[in-house]
């Protein structure tokens, strides 16, 4: 903490009144930002300044601020969740910036993630993809079987767990030049396809989830690998390949 200092920054932030209005980039100046503060704390500080100036504060998504909920979603200086890697926006700190920097802050840009207000986007398209097949049909009315009753290969369990680490923040879509959701869907498909419990519904799951993904207006994967780099949870491209395999298998049936 002793190395913390205060910096002055310029911000260019997307302002949009509501889902229907046309937005624009607005410029703000913010002084005395501690480099020990998080990016979201910096935005809180800016909002206090705006409220004092009797202007509308900037709307942005946030919840746990611990890097695990997947709620925060900002495109900072041309990168999803900002310049650091393996983190969500709430885990980005102002020590990554220098005094006098101009920082661009934009919402996720995707047809399937429409802007609701300022930096807040509607990610319910992800929910609809999940509802199309991202589950296992288990009877939970009092006769749930112990999870460890079914032996699972350690390697598969690990890979499934890695896929399940996806928090559905949408950084993959935001960073993909095609606005593709395949890393998200690949992770959700893999998480179940690797486990015996998920194999029963594997074929309908992948067909339904991909169909929903296409209907929502996400783009197509061109294997640039950008999503894997920007994903705060390090979800691997292997999951997209697995989804492609699963889809091919299911389509042949």
């Amino acid at each position: 903490m002793s190395s913390a200092k205060n910096i002055n920054i310029n911000l260019k932030i997307w302002r949009q009144k509501n889902a229907k209005s046309k937005g624009s980039m607005e410029t703000y100046k913010l002084d005395n930002v501690s480099t020990a503060s998080s990016f979201l704390e910096m935005l809180d500080q800016l909002n206090e300044q705006l409220i004092n100036e009797k202007t509308e504060p900037i709307a942005f998504d946030h919840d746990c601020r611990e890097g695990i909920c997947g709620m925060c979603s900002l495109y900072i200086n041309g990168r999803a969740h900002g310049p650091d890697t393996g983190i969500t926006t709430c885990q980005l700190h102002m020590r990554m910036f220098k005094d006098g920097d101009t920082i661009f802050v934009e919402p996720w840009r995707s047809k399937a993630f429409p802007v609701i207000k300022d930096l807040v986007v509607d990610r319910s398209s992800f929910d609809r993809i999940q509802q199309a097949g991202g589950f296992v049909s288990v009877n939970t009315s009092g006769n749930t079987i112990d999870a460890n009753a079914t032996p699972i290969n350690k390697n598969d369990a690990d890979k499934s767990f890695e896929a399940a680490a996806c928090i559905g923040c949408g950084a993959c879509v935001a960073t993909c030049k095609n606005g593709s959701a395949m890393l998200f869907v690949g992770a959700k498909v893999s998480q179940y396809a690797l486990l015996p419990q998920g194999k029963v519904e594997a074929a309908t799951r992948v067909l339904n989830m991909v169909r929903q993904m296409d209907e929502e207006g996400f783009g197509n994967c061109t294997n640039t690998g950008a999503c894997e780099i920007e994903c705060p949870k390090g979800i691997s491209l292997e999951n997209i390949a697995r989804m492609n395999r699963e889809y091919l298998k299911a389509s042949m049936k």
Binding site: K12, W14, R79, E106, R109, K111, T175, G179, S180, N220
Partner: peptide, 14 residues
């Protein structure tokens, strides 16, 4: 793919 992102980023660092 172009349709999937109707509004481009003001700043992008691909």
């Amino acid at each position: 793919n172009k349709k999937a992102r109707p509004i481009a980023y003001a700043m992008n660092n691909p």
